[in-house]
Design a protein around this nucleic acid. Structure first.
Lengths: 340, 340
DNA sequence: ACCTGGTAAGTTATCGGTAACGTACAGGCG
DNA sequence: CGCCTGTACGTTACCGATAACTTACCAGGT
């Protein structure tokens, strides 16, 4: 029992070898299934290893071999956002197939922190990085700064560097959602989105703008709010738009936090207020159980994570400098009717 | 630019030392702020390091020093569950303060996988582990198997080993929720929970059972479903209970997935069906925006993660074998009225 | 008997750092 | 002047595993 008393010197390969009267090299070869060792000896070694419960020191192995450490760094802004946690799930799913693990780094949307986190992960010897970037300048992820490690950007295409990326069809999804609102007869459609400095911010806005243009509806700046922040801020923004003398009859929200904010804003309205339709990017759990109907642009963040991991491992496998690839995940428009 | 072409031999400490005409030891001391080096020399070294952009190899450092690697392993069943992702967020918040990072391991609720994941994380040199265990046997987390690393269990107390743990007030929270249902006049209260083999399964059931006993209500096995599974299974279980000839007038769900299942089951009922009250453990985002009122046992999983990390680092700091500690997070009962 | 070739094992150097120790030189004190 | 202490730096031996090289051995062919 006594878990704390004896801190054993942590069995080494030499110990195993000494016990068998062979050289450490023989043990090494046996463990890695290399050729150049007799079957009888291999069995003897493996038996001893099993009996002693010896486990090789992975860091020492990586130090010498310089080879893959089977370690992937994941850099996100906030893991509490289901988008990122699902991205992590997908990434890990693929990683286990390669015997790799995921090391986590949160940036809190601060580019300076992002730089530090990335540097730290590189120092710790990750084989590659999946980054959901906080800012729109990605030069700190380029080339030599990272010892030429493969990088995959998630949810944002590379700016100023040439790396692979996985994207959601931000433009197409938003345009489709906006078209549906138009098809239902809405002409005054408000937009709650992210700042144009973010890729998703500009692409989703573009989807909205193009859909309106296609329908021959002019953009009305009063109906548009593009801010960065949490759902509280989004709620305020939604309130402001709805308080206009000539308020929109529908709202289009560009991500889950804006959708939540809009839902709260719509909840607080007077009983006799005109109903306002709502459509938003990102699916929301229990969207089908809300007090009002909601149309969402749905996609699978887990799949996004899997795609990112796949790109990463493929890049790692090939040494020749292929051109950067870009994978885009399709979106589906889903109508969630209100219960009852 | 050319990110792929030249893979530099990755600057070493010796290189820096050679360039300055000093010994590697001097560089090492300068970098770690050790004494035993003149101020002038230190400045010269630091300047050269900065100029060359040299970064020390952390793995080599850890190999030699055997000391803290500033790496914590987090083992959870499924990061997509907001409970676990928020736990991870809290853990990482504290870790950054210690310069530590988090390495992730998902088990998919399979104890065998959990054992493998834990072993792998230990091999990779974590300084400690935070584990949200899949099963109720924790002996694989004990003593020598882990090279005496500190372990903190999350959401489950240790069984068969002596380690620290952080818990939610499962019993108290559930009892309070059940009491509230009773106070509202319900006498036939259904329970959708987890199997008794899980700590949360038995504790939350105990809260339900004790609250009923206190109210002088006999347990009715027909109203009780204790299964392991996702919200789809929970929905079926809820349907079955509600289809009884003498159905419950209220449901108590023991975790977020059961609550979601129950919500879906309640949604599908006929218009003229008797209303059924719902109370559940775990808060749910947008609980205030659902089509029916919901009472939840709320707590902060982020705080749980912070508590786990704090216990871990305190345990790491002190060498003497203090007795294991147990931190319990309080819960709050929150009523979410339905909108309108 | 001799050479060849292949396999199985041991030896050595090395990876990038750190700990322990050695040494040279400075200053303080009786 | 001798002794001790402290500082600054150099030297060396590791840490645990592996790559590359070397040696030992055996079988088979001539």
């Amino acid at each position: 029992m006594s878990a704390h008393s004896e801190s054993e010197p942590a069995l080494t390969m030499r110990d195993v070898a000494a016990r068998l009267g062979v050289s450490p090299m023989t043990v090494s070869r046996a463990l890695r299934g290399q050729r150049g060792i007799g079957e009888a000896t291999r069995q003897r070694v493996l038996a001893e290893v099993a009996a002693l419960g010896y486990r090789p020191n992975k860091r020492a192995r990586e130090l010498r071999s310089g080879g893959p450490n089977e370690l992937i760094g994941l850099v996100v802004t906030n893991l509490a956002n289901p988008f990122y946690s699902q991205l992590a799930v997908g990434l890990e799913q693929i990683c286990v197939g390669y015997g790799a693990r995921v090391m986590l780094g949160s940036t809190g949307e601060d580019p300076a922190t992002e730089r530090e986190v990335v540097a730290d992960l590189v120092d710790r010897g990750v084989d590659g990085l999946v980054v959901a970037p906080a800012g729109h300048d990605h030069s700190h992820l380029g080339g030599t700064r990272l010892r030429d490690l493969p990088v995959v950007l998630a949810a944002s295409p590379p700016m100023g560097i040439d790396v692979d990326c996985v994207l959601v069809d931000d433009f197409g999804g938003t345009r489709e959602a906006c078209r549906r609102l138009v098809a239902r007869g809405h002409r005054r459609i408000g937009f709650l989105g992210l700042p144009p400095s973010l890729w998703t911010g500009s692409e989703r806005f573009r989807g909205y703008a193009v859909a309106l243009e296609e329908a021959g509806i002019a953009l009305d700046e009063r109906y548009i709010s593009r801010h960065r922040g949490d759902s509280t801020l989004a709620e305020e923004a939604a309130r402001a738009v709805l308080a206009l003398p000539d308020p929109p009859t529908a709202l289009l929200t560009a991500n889950n936090r804006n959708t939540v904010g809009a839902l709260r804003a719509l909840r607080g309205r007077a009983q006799d207020a005109e109903p306002v339709a709502l459509a938003g990017f990102d699916d929301i759990e229990l969207a089908d159980m809300l007090h009002l109907p909601l149309t969402v642009v749905s996609y699978d963040p887990v799949e996004l994570g899997r795609a990112a991991a796949t790109l990463l491992f493929e890049r790692q496998a090939s040494t020749d400098p292929k051109p950067p690839r870009r994978v885009t995940i399709a979106t589906t428009l889903v109508d969630h009717p209100a219960p009852r």
